[in-house]
């Protein structure tokens, strides 16, 4: 067992993990943060996307021990208290989710995507979210949500 110290959603945590435990499993099992979902565990679907030191990361492809000292944000840390993040609000407003299983991964990816591409075209959006799989929505509501979120974030800044 290894002790890993990390910050998760602003809270300092120490967790005990085996070296082989993925960061996704550690977040879900050791930190009780089950919003990070696993739909492939081989790095393709993007469901497990979280932010590690400000970058979007697939937490199924990272071991928990690699996150020692890292600043991690999961979907649970995105809203500001009761106030949803603009990306979360936009997914809700534009029917960007149905079963919702892919949603935390999308929301985290989109949040990062809009940081680097604040005013994306439709093609840029489709390209930017093509690393996340959704089986329910055909992506149409998600694309609309990204546009709406971009507009709201641009209006804010």
């Amino acid at each position: 067992m290894h002790e890993v110290a990390l910050t998760v959603n602003g809270t300092n945590m120490r967790i005990e993990v085996e070296p082989r435990m993925t960061l996704a499993d550690a977040l879900r099992d050791r930190c009780d943060l089950t919003g990070t979902h696993l739909a492939c565990e081989h790095g393709v679907c993007g469901s497990c996307t979280i932010s590690v030191d400000g970058r979007a990361v697939r937490s199924c492809l990272m071991f928990a021990v690699q996150a020692d000292g890292a600043d991690v944000m999961t979907i649970e840390g995105l809203a500001n208290g009761e106030e949803l993040h603009p990306v979360q609000k936009a997914f809700q407003a534009e029917h960007g989710l149905q079963c919702g299983f892919c949603t935390p991964g999308f929301v985290m990816s989109v949040t990062k995507f809009l940081e680097t591409t604040p005013d994306p075209t439709d093609d840029q959006i489709r390209d930017g979210i093509s690393g996340n799989l959704c089986r329910c929505t055909g992506y149409q509501g998600i694309v609309r949500a990204v546009k709406r979120a971009a507009a709201e974030l641009n209006g804010q800044s």
Partner: peptide
């Protein structure tokens, strides 16, 4: 359904 799902509380 959405509020719990977009916040990771599904």
């Amino acid at each position: 359904e959405d509020r719990r799902l977009v916040t990771g509380h599904g």
